[in-house]
């Protein structure tokens, strides 16, 4: 195979497959764009190129050129990309018009908590709770309601966030709900309203408090601490700071309920099982992936043209990827344009 033919074949492949071919042959191939990848692959030793041709042949064998893809108008010589992951008989892809149907602002409705929110609040009376639900679902409502109940029971509450910036936002938010006299904030050098029932701090500060309490020297009372809320608790897996979340959970007072708010993670059940295994009550997991506002995906071409990103309107979960043909075409054109003149 001449370089030219190989170059053409490579250009017809999705970038994903190019990365596949480059694996173990091109260092840091994942940093490269399509053009650089192709050029680097073509510059490999003849031996390696022969290997690539072999893998290429086996890749190209079974999926035939897709008949339903219109050829890009401005690059007639370019073979259309082979199809991958497309089911044998796909449902018709949606139109751009359909994609953008139904945009708008819903009417105001009286607030009614979701079942999972209620479930979380109820369980917090007796259990620790992990809330692993999609972004923007309403975890804060659970936190606020649990705080309200704790205050009614004359307990104190500690709310931690990983970032000082978030602490400040929460200070404002909680002050609006409970009144500013009810909320305090602790940093390394400042204590604003430390006698308030709700205290906001970073997780490191709470960990330090817990160590001080363990060695019996603390100027703050932890025996009335009824609720500890750890926001963004997926930080448990942070390379440098994750250990602080572990220490906090291990040393959290037995009488305090833990409420972990987390973005979606793959194994919330494992985290719940761990917490159950070390605490006096079991840890209840609330986990779902249903977004309260449905999410759709679009592709915006540099020309300003919008197209559906997927063949379907809603984003399907874990069902394999089926990009919209129009998006594929636009993206292929984009790559052609930006990759510059191809080596002849």
């Amino acid at each position: 195979m001449t370089n030219d033919v190989l170059a053409k074949q490579l250009a017809g492949l999705p970038v994903k497959l190019l990365h596949h071919l480059a694996r173990k042959r091109v260092p840091r191939h994942f940093r490269m764009g399509k053009n650089r990848l192709i050029q680097t692959l073509l510059a490999l030793s003849p031996d390696q190129q022969a290997e690539i041709e072999t893998s290429l042949a086996s890749l190209l064998q079974e999926p035939a050129r897709s008949p339903d893809l219109p050829k890009p108008p401005d690059t007639p010589s370019r073979p259309s990309p082979p199809r991958h992951n497309v089911p044998a008989e796909p449902a018709p892809a949606i139109s751009t018009k359909e994609l953008f149907e139904g945009i708008g602002v819903p009417p105001q409705r009286p607030f009614k908590p979701d079942d999972w929110q209620q479930e979380a609040i109820n369980h917090l009376a007796t259990n620790d709770v992990i809330l692993s639900v999609p972004t923007g679902s309403g975890k804060t409502y659970v936190a606020l309601e649990a705080m309200r109940r704790a205050i009614e029971a004359e307990q104190t509450i500690i709310y931690t966030s990983p970032l000082k910036a978030l602490s400040n936002t929460k200070l404002t938010e909680f002050s609006q709900t409970f009144g500013s006299d009810q909320v305090g904030i602790l940093t390394g050098d400042r204590r604003d309203n430390p006698q308030a029932p709700i205290l906001i701090m970073t997780t490191e500060i709470l960990r330090n408090l817990l160590y001080d309490a363990a060695s019996g020297e603390i100027d703050m009372r932890l025996d009335t601490l009824g609720l500890i809320i750890l926001d963004e608790s997926q930080f448990l897996a942070d390379r440098e700071r994750g250990v602080v979340w572990e220490e906090t959970i291990i040393f959290a007072p037995a009488q305090s309920r833990l409420l972990l708010l987390s973005a979606s993670i793959g194994n919330p059940d494992e985290v719940a099982a761990w917490i159950s295994s070390i605490r006096s009550t079991s840890c209840h997991l609330i986990h779902h992936r249903n977004r309260s506002v449905p999410l759709r995906a679009a592709y915006l071409d540099p020309s300003g043209k919008l197209a559906p990103f997927f063949r379907t309107r809603d984003i399907a979960h874990g069902k394999g990827v089926a990009l919209h043909p129009e998006t594929k075409r636009l993206f292929a054109n984009y790559e052609d344009r930006t990759l510059g003149p191809r080596k002849r």
Binding site: P14, V15, K16, H19, R31, M32, G33, G102, I103, G104, V105, P106, Q108, P134, T135, G136, S137, G138, A263, S264, R291, S292, V293, P294, L295, R296, A297, A298, Y299, L300, D301, P302, L306, F309, V321, L323, T327, F331, Y334, T338
Partner: peptide, 30 residues
Amino acid sequence: IQQLAGRGGRRGKDYVGFVVVTPSPYIDLG
């Protein structure tokens, strides 16, 4: 990616949220 995309669509203010993908150098759709 889900953390980013998840900010699309405000509860109570939107019927539907969007994630719009637009290319820059070194983007890959996969």
